[in-house]
Amino acid sequence: MNEISTVTASGKIVAPAEGWKVPRIELLRRGFPLIFLVILVAVFTAMSPRFLSLENLSTVLEQGTVLLVAALGMTFIIMAGSIDISVGAIVAVSALVAAVTSTSLGVWAIIPAIAVGSVCGCLNGLLLAVGKVPSFIATMGTMVVYRGLVLYFTRGAPVSIGDDSFLDAYSGITYGLPHEVVIGLILAAVAWAIINYTVFGREVRAIGGGERVSILTGIPVMRVKILMYVLLGALCGMAGLLQGARTMAATSQLGLGLELDVIASVVVGGTPLTGGLGSITSTMLGVLIITLLSSGMNMGGVDPYFQNIIKGIVLVTAVFITIDRKKIGIIK
């Protein structure tokens, strides 16, 4: 036992009122991502000296941007205690829309891409908030629908992106800075401000901390839930656009399995799936870890078929460490 107080079912408390200290498990939860990152860098540098080169790190940042943009949105969802596994499919839909509209709209293909992403997210939000379908099931269904839409319209064929203004805007380089990395960091700053400085950010956190308390305290739970899914959808729209620009095409395979990386990034960063806690800096750290892990395994020559096994283990380990078991009660 440590200093943390214990609340029994009847609300009785066995507790010190003052001198509350951060319990050890909490310190582990906070320190874990950073420790993991250091170990990762050390191992990969030992395996391949090129790993720490400026060139490689800049590639890592470019690769990580799509993941980062989607993970920013996922941070809100997980903080509220929900989940969304349709993110990869939304990214694919948005990339397709961006690819199709870029020929006529050029740079402004961003508008339909984000709009379509938002609509997809809004649908998820409505299913959860109004339809009361658990988010895991709801987004599992919509994942199949969104991915199916892409397959239906493309018949599996890739749609290439040839518009120079579009490609230059979203994957060009200015003063040595890749545009997508700058966009990703600006969006991260905005998401950070929303979480820390707006009422909406606090309400998302409150819903994750205790939904019933939030309802009875007058937080517009339904509205907040829909809004956070729209936000995630919009960010996935942006992620799809950036991914399309990077690969100069939208394919039906684009974003396949991305949901695992996105959720892993948020959780590995230290945001527990049980909700109520979370931060953008944690998510950025998590994105860095997941991207470095993929990149390092590639450079280190780890069998590509083996890489998924390691990623899965990392995800489960992160959940194991971060999850608040008092809150889930019974694990089913």
């Binding site: 956190r205 409150a206 901390g209 205790g210 308390v213 109520g276 608040d324 809150k327």
Partner: peptide, 17 residues
Amino acid sequence: GNEGLIAGFSVLDNLVM
């Protein structure tokens, strides 16, 4: 515990909720 306050949140967060 389930309806009145969020025990994991700070006193401030609960007071101004």
